[in-house]
């Protein structure tokens, strides 16, 4: 999530300066766009239009190309994540052990769909493909914390920890 504590999701000047310093420090800008976007997402928390335009300008490539890359890879997001991003693993192991029901329960409780953020900005919801903790299936992540063997009726108490 955003490292830049002062600006959170507001696109402050200092965040852009940090990104600029990273880009200027690159040995070779050729082919660096994906690592620049990784850095940008680390700084801003997400990749809105302004950030994509900035990256394009600095790397001297068309914005369309940057957008093409951002939209291609699932790791990049154009919407700000919630304060507590929730990821439900939908890898096969979790799926056959009932991850879909857990996901449905979270959707219903928070009243948001996958890829959305609650109006108060507290939670965002994503489905991801395999965290690799298949022994704990089904797995739910809230921020960096891993919850294993989650059942639908545990959802409410898990979310309560973050209220």
């Amino acid at each position: 999530m955003a490292n830049c504590e002062t600006c959170k999701n507001k696109l402050s000047e200092s965040c852009f300066r940090e990104l600029e310093a990273f880009i200027d420090g690159l040995e070779d800008k050729n082919g660096a766009v994906i690592s620049v976007l990784h850095k940008a997402q680390e700084i801003f928390g997400y990749l809105p239009r302004e950030v994509q335009q900035f990256v394009a300008k600095k790397l001297e490539i068309p914005v369309s190309k940057v957008y093409g890359i951002v939209s291609f890879y699932s790791f990049f997001t154009m919407v700000p994540k919630g304060e507590h991003p929730i990821s439900v693993c939908m890898g096969t192991a979790c799926y056959v052990r009932g991850a879909e029901k857990v996901l449905d329960e979270i959707k219903r409780t928070l009243n948001i769909e996958v890829g959305e953020t609650t109006p108060d900005g507290k939670f965002s919801l994503d489905a991801l493909r395999c965290v690799g903790a298949c022994g704990l299936a089904p797995v739910v992540l809230v921020g960096d914390k891993v919850y294993g063997r989650v059942t639908p009726d545990q959802v409410k108490s898990i979310l309560k920890e973050y209220e």
Partner: peptide, 25 residues
């Protein structure tokens, strides 16, 4: 080290190489 950004198709070697070059995989 080069980082992937989440695309299953990048396991295919030509796609992987394009991704390492900073393109869509």
């Amino acid at each position: 080290i080069k980082y992937g950004a989440g695309a299953f198709v990048c396991g295919e070697e030509t796609a992987l190489i394009h991704s390492m070059e900073g393109e869509r995989g």
